[in-house]
Design a protein around this nucleic acid. Sequence first.
DNA 1: ATGCATTTGTTCGTATGTATT
DNA 2: CAATACATACGAACAAATGCA
Lengths: 236, 236
Amino acid sequence: MTQRQNRVPYYLQVKHSIIENIKSQSWKPGEKIPSENQLMQQHQVSRSTIRQAISQLAQEGILETKRGKSTTVKKKPTDHVKNPGVIQREKGSEFSVHLIRTVHGKKMDYAKKMLGLTEEQSVYMYERLRLADGIPIAFQQLFVPEHIVDTLTDEDLLVFDFHSHLEEIGVIASYSKDYVSASLANTYEADFLGIVTGDPLVDLTRITLGIDQSPLEYCRTKYLPSYFDFTVETRG
Amino acid sequence: MTQRQNRVPYYLQVKHSIIENIKSQSWKPGEKIPSENQLMQQHQVSRSTIRQAISQLAQEGILETKRGKSTTVKKKPTDHVKNPGVIQREKGSEFSVHLIRTVHGKKMDYAKKMLGLTEEQSVYMYERLRLADGIPIAFQQLFVPEHIVDTLTDEDLLVFDFHSHLEEIGVIASYSKDYVSASLANTYEADFLGIVTGDPLVDLTRITLGIDQSPLEYCRTKYLPSYFDFTVETRG
DNA sequence: ATGCATTTGTTCGTATGTATT
DNA sequence: CAATACATACGAACAAATGCA
């Protein structure tokens, strides 16, 4: 397995071997990996070398070590986001979406402006309710240009994460921008969310562009503050 | 320096000692630190122990090592590199700060919890108003542990950006986290901000840690939504 | 409850490799 | 070329936490 002529340091070879085992699902998240002694014998290197590989993987958040217990493959570290340090999370365990209504037309000037559409082009607006464990946590208005709608099925409109769903059906997003603000619930929104008119909401606006810079979606979501986390970490 | 009866591992004692030297500016960013051999003799421990301390600090981004060259204190990348795509902006042209009041004590349990302080430690709270062009745009409560306050002058409390001001006076932050939410103005806040009780506010909470993970500040700022921008761009 | 085997954590010492000055 | 600096690697010993018979 490990070989000298490579001149790749042994500890890196061990590290890659461990990563391969995890990627191939031989060692699954939450499960034990072989002990340091076993790895020593498998790779025919010293314990220090094994430890160097493991400690690096631990610091990278891939393995989890604890004295006295076996080293395990760390379970999915919560969020795998494109923008390191930015975490958007809805709180709950079971999520679903309820479609309130669909509007199709050439009005909705503000949305059309945000999507960069011309006068003649038309827009679909989907008003949706986002639910966590059956409780409404957000009121959402999703604006999509007609030419994108043509590629969607009815079920596509009920997926919880429309944004990442776009990718799955082959529509590639190259750029998206989120604006965060606060607003207060109007009577219409409050009714759906089971709150009182005037309660505060986290107001999230997202614009997504395709690889050719053409607009894919303009989405405005108003969350109950306690069901939504938006955090930004800065290191260095 | 290093002593056995502590039962704090030697490598952690060395690590701490290095951090102290950096915090006290004895070893400045970009400059060399003593070689592993010198540190061995200073601390009277083996080279492996020194290396364990240094390699961890290197992985934490505090030191920079390179074969053949001296280990240096890593220079902090300038602000804009920190988190590409995340923009926080207050709107206006002329900014200032008004100090409403100062509270000092051992109550304020929530703030102490966020700062990771013990029962006996005390906290200073500064209630400030952030103004843009003379108009109040945010109500801010800034909690600082006593040992940080000791290093501050009265003028330090009136600077507009306390966060980046910390760096200027030599207190080095390694990590900060911002939470964004929404809340509604209570009567007290509304009064200062010139709005009506119940108006929505963007609720920004920031926690800043030093390089030794000790808490530097816990800050809660409530902005008038129209005077604050928080945007996140994602590419790829 | 006790004790023993297992597992990771800390520390030492030594030797050799490789890049920089 | 030599001296210095960090990097890799081995082996050994003991400590501390855990789990099991």
